[in-house]
Computed example of a mutant assay.
Amino acid sequence: MIHVLVAASSAVIRSVLKDIILKTKKLQWAGEAASYAELKAEIIHLNPDAVISDKSLFDAVRSSTLSDFCYTTVIPTIIYHQPGDKPYYSAKNIKFLEMPGFISFSSNKVEEYSVELEQYIMDLKCNVLFENHPASVVSSLSDNGASAPVVMQALPKVFKERRFKAVLVGVSTGGPGALLEFLKGIGKDFPIPIIITQHIDSFFDKNLITWLASEAALPIHLAENNMRPLPGHIYFAPSDVHVTFVPVTDDDYRIVLNHDAPINFLRPSVDKMFESAARVFGENCIAVVLTGMGADGAKECVHLKQLGAYTITQDKASSVIYGMPKAAYEMGGSCEVLPLKQIPERLWSLAGRERA
């Protein structure tokens, strides 16, 4: 469980946030503070895993208090601000959000927002862990603790003869370490472009790409509008933008950055990428759902499978959070369930090539 300290000058906001946290599965109420002085004292006393606060709490002291806190705290922190009042401080463990209308929250809205808040905090925790501990996730284990590779099913002939146009990967919480292992497993000269939607904060997408490129030695790019994906190259959805596709010819296509509304609070959305792939590629694509909280990608993974695309979901043992792959599997959207270490091997077999 992640112990969360809430700090807000408004008793109503503290009360609503407490209700929201108590309805989550992975967050636990640690305590509250009504002023910046109390927040500093409770951080020392309670040693929380995460903090939720609002900008006015810091502004009530002096103008520099918020920046001092942002540059010194190591605790993952969500800070709410009023519309139009967003601060521009960047830190891997701070996320600024516009203040919702907590006072008018209904019981249904409390339930709904609990899922969103849990995702925000889990992603913040993941950002910090990724920055400090870039180790890969563990592989599947047998009952005696030994590595237990899955015997992959024989690939049906229809897929051996397919000319796939893209590999599409959806991933969220636990993604950085999983992606490092995944990309190292792919190796060099993979004959199909790989497009990845990773839920991540706006200031962090370029850092993630730089880190992965230095570790995996692959050509990795932040996707750009009208970009033509190349075989063996990796393309990441920029933060706060959906990645979609448009056909140019029967064998050619372009990436289109899409600014439509978030889907289930998410932009970029894996479902949005998969939905576009279904229209542009149909059966001629491979969809992979890796570790992550929630169900993003599950519905459209089912759709892709129904069209004849090949869909892979990561197994529970090798997932940091078995949410997204579980949802896709349980909805019937998985052609194959594999440990993370074996997914690159399957992709090479689908590409009809030996791994370089």
Rank of each mutant, 00 (worst) to 15 (best):
G31H: 04
A11I: 12
H133E: 10
I43A: 04
Y113L: 05
L5H: 01
N127H: 15
C126E: 15
S107D: 13
S140Y: 01
A135G: 10
T77W: 00
C126G: 14
F130S: 14
S53T: 15
T65A: 15
L66K: 14
K86W: 01
L57A: 01
Y36T: 06
V74P: 02
D123G: 08
E116G: 02
K125T: 10
T77P: 10
T72E: 09
S104M: 08
K23G: 05
H3S: 11
A91Y: 04
S142F: 07
E118M: 03
F105N: 05
V6H: 03
S63T: 14
Y88A: 03
I43W: 00
S104L: 12
V110Q: 09
N127R: 15
H45G: 04
V115W: 10
F105M: 08
N47I: 09
K25G: 11
L27V: 10
S53F: 00
S139P: 08
K86S: 07
T65F: 01
Q119L: 08
Y80I: 08
A41E: 12
P134N: 12
K23L: 11
F130R: 13
K26H: 09
E42G: 03
I13C: 01
M1T: 14
G101W: 02
D49L: 01
L66E: 04
P87L: 07
V6I: 15
I94V: 09
I20C: 02
Q28V: 10
I43M: 15
D85R: 14
S15W: 02
